[in-house]
Design a protein around this nucleic acid. Structure first.
Lengths: 202, 202
DNA sequence: CCCTTAACTTTCCATTGTAAATATATTCGC
DNA sequence: GCGAATATATTTACAATGGAAAGTTAAGGG
């Protein structure tokens, strides 16, 4: 509305600080990791005072939560990546699981933040939406998988829990360096080598 | 050696501060959780200055690491609990897996600390020993389990990774409240209900 | 045009972990 | 036993952090 004719627009005080702060936080996570993600460093990167974020996020926890929500959105993209154009279920399963782990390996600090209830607010609506959308990808993949002979009416949900738990645990243990490694330090088994143990009904 | 006849012994300055600090830390984790586990609060609980721990642990990180190591020892106890006197393998599997999850539920803050490379020092020898001893319980249980038709020479290790990942992921997702719950808030599936999907060869 | 409100800054403060210097008790050489 | 060396713990000081409070600037609405 108040757009002037000049391209060099500097809207109000900053523009949309809200978005810029989340971007800055994501950048910092990549370069300095979680310890570097302080209120002051995020604000400094954007060029505002360290109390500016309060107007938009309330507290550091609120900002953390917003960054984590964006993380879950990118997490879902990673999982969906490689799914397009493939209808073969085992292939889709491997692609999704691999995307889950690939994201954790590529963005370890962000992944850590996303699953830290102490840093984020699990009751935040936006975070829950993003988180559930991410898990929904795996949920879709798990449909039709066989686990525990598929007995019982809720066998499908049980299989989902099994698949989620495994992939998440694998990613977590990998990041904390507790999975068995070969002499060169590489992992003995990729998630892709273990996933085939799951079988589909058809 | 320098034991006097009186029972009211106050050895040197404190006694064994090292042990007392770890105990205090474990107590604080139970009552106040991870955020309450500060250098100053731990020291205050023991009744020493907040710089006293430095002599024994170097830094807060060192103290965190020692507390986590003790956590892994108790973790192993939880898993071994219920194993004694039972030779039935599926029963032993359920008992160990349930112990893993039961510990996480009963000591969530300690469990969180144990798997936080940012708070602990993963290269610490005592921590590694305790951690490996804990995982060795599951390793033993996993022996003979079938996964992925057992093909390949390292099928056993692959099964261990699968089992570890699943149990750990289940515990983690449970603590962050991301496992599916019923209307009353209780979990839909206990780890014991999922574990039977694993089968033994014999 | 003025008044209200949102966005942001400045200033201040309590809390935290750590370093340095100091004090005190234990241990060891003799 | 006795003094030096060492381990143990305290005091003091400091930089960094998140947050509260008050003030400043810009936008929007009557």
């Amino acid at each position: 509305m108040t757009d002037t004719l000049q391209d060099q627009k500097k809207p109000y005080h900053h523009g949309d600080l809200k978005h810029a702060l989340v971007e800055a936080g994501l950048d910092i996570l990549e370069t300095e990791g979680l310890p570097g993600l302080t209120l002051r460093s995020i604000a400094a990167r954007v060029g505002v005072s360290h109390t500016a974020p309060k107007n938009h996020f309330g507290s550091l926890r609120g900002l953390h939560t917003a960054i984590a929500a964006e993380g879950f959105r990118r997490h879902a993209v990673f999982m969906r990546d490689g799914l397009d154009g493939t209808s073969d279920r085992p292939t889709r399963l491997r692609a999704a699981a691999n995307g889950y782990v690939r994201f954790a390996r590529k963005h370890p600090a962000l992944f850590e933040l996303m699953f830290s209830p102490l840093l984020c607010d699990p009751s935040d609506a936006a975070l829950q939406t993003a988180s559930q959308a991410s898990f929904a990808v795996l949920e879709d993949i798990a449909d039709g998988l066989i686990w525990d002979k598929g007995r019982g009416a809720d066998a499908g949900t049980k299989t989902q829990v099994m698949l989620w738990s495994f992939v998440h645990g694998y990613a977590k243990l990998m990041l904390s360096g507790q999975l068995p490694c070969g002499p060169d330090g590489s992992l003995l088994f990729s998630v892709n080598q273990i996933i085939p143990g799951f079988a589909y009904a058809d």
